[in-house]
């Protein structure tokens, strides 16, 4: 088994419950192909760095899972044919994963790496990039 992460971008016009439903559908798809979902996380609506599909915003959904290469092909195929998906990116995190071991070890999933779009206090000084406010407008 290999470990993958997929981040995909949904249209901001999609109602939240539909987005939730869609991410659920993808998770189910992983399970139906002998895969294991490790994390599924809705990053929420964020401002984009550039316009995608006539929109400056988008909803990011992150999925971390175990599976074989054909599973990735299947997931990407579904993402590709859905009009609400603006962008997606899959990254292989690990080539050979011991499934039982990986499932038991709860790796800390930190939200600091997935900074929230708003209503959050800014990162500690020093790490603050010079243009951070651009991303949260």
């Amino acid at each position: 088994m290999k470990e993958y992460e997929t981040l995909y971008l949904l249209s901001p016009d999609l109602p939240p419950e539909k987005a939730e439903e869609f991410s659920h559908k993808i998770s189910e798809l992983v399970k139906s192909h002998q895969g294991q979902v490790l994390t599924s996380f809705n990053w929420g609506k964020r401002r984009l760095a550039y316009r995608v599909g006539k929109s400056n915003q988008g909803v990011y959904i992150y999925l971390n899972y175990l599976g074989q290469g054909n599973l990735v092909a299947e997931v990407e195929r579904v993402l590709k044919y859905d009009d609400n998906v603006l962008k997606f990116l899959t990254v292989k995190l690990d080539d050979e994963v011991n499934v039982d071991e990986r499932l038991t070890q709860k790796r800390e999933f930190t939200l600091t790496s997935l900074d929230e779009p708003s209503d959050r206090p800014p990162a500690p000084a020093g790490q603050e990039p010079h243009r951070s406010q651009d991303y949260h407008r």
Partner: peptide, 14 residues
């Protein structure tokens, strides 16, 4: 990590 644009933005120009 590509998921951490806040960190990465420190390493790119304006």
């Amino acid at each position: 990590d590509f998921k951490n644009p806040r960190l990465l933005s420190y390493f790119i120009t304006e």
